[in-house]
Amino acid sequence: MSGGFVNTLAVARLEWRRLVVRPLAWVLAALTLAWLAWNFTLLLGDFLAGQIQRAALPGGPGFTDLVAVPLLGQLAQLAFLVVPLLTMPAIAGDRRNGTLPLLFAAGVPASHIVLGRYLAVLGWLLWWLVLTLAMPLALAHATSLDWGKLAAAALGLALMLAALAAVGVASSTFASHPAIAAAAALIVTLALWGVNLGAQMAGINGGAINWLAMSTHLQPLLRGLVSTTDLLWFVLLVALALALATHRLGSDRERG
């Protein structure tokens, strides 16, 4: 195994361990999953109530459109709050505790510290997504799922969580206090989501401002449309956020 991979893995394991022993991660998981489970039962109740009317419409929306995808949409809304809370101590906490120099002194480059921290948070978020997906999947034997659409929506959610986590880790790298990191991450991600709201209200549906907005790239995926442009947008955002975080952390070591 290469030294870089070992470094990243060691940092990721350390961060994962810190994440799972913190009550915050468990409280967030419990509260959000309980909320999502409650909403799942409501969506399922509505779906069952309208089943007879929909039977008369061939090709109408099914379980995936009316239960699974809206549930993932709710997860996306919760993610705007949950991800900043999870990522806030990633680097800002270390800076505050004085433990950041321990990582530098172990010869771990800034890029590996950032990547390790990011992978640990991403691991937790993907586990969160899988538990949410388990709810509609539990009924797969009793209903007809549109597997392609569900896979596209799950991919969209995974990419969105990856992007929010990257922005959260970057905010944590720039902030001196975890609470400031959480607030900054929330503001940046909300701005990224709604940067095109004004243009939308003015009836403009194209152009650079719409391309910048996260919603422009997530909505098609939730509808089951996978395009390279949308995937690239998320990949670029993750790469940009992690590159900024690495640059900031590297200058921390320079500045002391």
């Binding site: 350390l14 810190r18 022993v21 004085g98 321990l102 002194a105």
Partner: peptide, 13 residues
């Protein structure tokens, strides 16, 4: 091997 002043540690470990 480095022991910094005031031995910073990860409190949750």
């Amino acid at each position: 091997g480095w022991l910094p002043e005031r031995a910073p540690l990860w409190a949750e470990l």
